[in-house]
């Protein structure tokens, strides 16, 4: 059975990674799951400068989901290199840096500063961030900007470049095609779905930022549909995520067209979800007589 997935000229050993923002930089979860067995660790977003993040409360639970308003809280590129790289260097699984910014130039600057690090397998570009030069609308909502950002970042690195798409758009296929046209080596979808909770006792939004990002089982059908549509629209690998809690959920994503997966919110509920999902995928493949991940594709 071959579980590997090729992205650009590099191989992910298996399809089950852990999603950005839900796994820190790996260290916290080392006692709780076998990091070396992960298909990839997608780090918490890194921006050029440190960001303290949003005011609190930052979390609210919703039916079968949660809304977060973390606000890209991270230590910035300089401290990332000093404090996080040594541990990431010691890991045998691929480490994919989630890159964020408020300007095209900021994304570029992060990649320029870290690109010589062997510990980094590739990049996942978080284009759900508001573009301050574009009225605060997320980069990922406009195909023209997505293509431009992708092609300019592509020039800076030989490592695989994955564009992570936001579901908060009318036509996610158009965004995926723009990423592919810009030279993306893969696309990942979905990032969180915009959501809001009102506290009826305080008569105020539950979080100060008013809206936040919905994740967890509640968004799974949104993610599966996005993966299905995107995989029909592009010829690069599609990495599926959104609400994967177990192997059955993962298989749904693979059958819908995903070549690899990420476990996000489920890490909070069971820190070893990724291990269990990988085992379950292998069992499913054995039963179905599948020998490689591409056997999941083309059934409908």
């Amino acid at each position: 059975m071959d579980l590997s997935i090729k992205i650009k000229d590099k191989i992910l050993p298996n399809p089950v990674g852990v999603a950005s923002g839900t796994f820190g930089y790996g260290e916290e979860y080392a006692p709780l799951t076998d990091l070396s067995a992960l298909g990839a660790i997608y780090t918490k977003a890194v921006t050029v400068e440190p960001r303290p993040g949003n005011p609190l409360p930052r979390l609210v639970e919703t039916p079968a989901g949660m809304i977060n308003s973390i606000g890209l809280a991270n230590v910035g590129t300089e401290r990332f290199l000093k404090e996080k790289i040594p541990f990431l260097n010691s890991l045998s699984c691929p480490v994919i840096l989630n890159v964020a910014g408020s300007l095209e130039e900021e994304y570029a600057e992060v990649i320029r500063r870290v690109d010589s690090q062997d510990a980094l397998w590739g990049y996942e570009v978080n284009i759900s961030c508001p573009n301050v030069k574009h009225g605060g609308l997320a980069f990922g909502t406009d195909p023209v900007q997505v293509e431009r950002l992708t092609s300019s970042l592509k020039k800076l690195t030989d490592k695989p470049l994955i564009m992570k798409l936001t579901p908060n758009v009318t036509d996610i296929s158009a965004i995926a095609r723009a990423a592919e046209a810009g030279g993306a080596d893969a696309v990942a979808c979905i990032n969180t779905v915009m959501g809001m909770v009102v506290d009826i006792h305080k008569r105020k939004p539950a979080i100060p930022a008013v809206t936040g990002g919905l994740s967890g089982p509640a968004v799974k059908p949104v993610g599966v549909a996005a993966v299905y549509r995107v995989s029909k629209a592009v010829n690069i690998p599609v990495i599926g995520l959104g609400g994967i809690m177990n192997a059955d959920d993962a298989v749904e994503y693979l059958l819908a067209g995903a070549s690899a997966l990420q476990i996000g919110t489920a890490n909070f509920v069971d820190p070893d979800t990724s291990g269990k999902v990988l085992t379950g995928i292998k069992e499913y493949m054995k039963e179905a007589g599948f020998t490689r991940i591409s056997d999941f594709h083309g059934h409908f």
Binding site: T22, F23, G24, E28, Y29, L56, R58, V60, N267
Partner: peptide, 26 residues
């Protein structure tokens, strides 16, 4: 006490705000 998601320090969801004289905000 704050609302928590991961409980292990990975998600940055459970922060409290620190006094002005501290070296970080949360």
């Amino acid at each position: 006490e704050e609302m928590m998601a991961c409980g292990v320090g990975a998600c940055m969801g459970c922060v409290v705000e620190l006094a002005e004289d501290q070296d970080r905000k949360y």
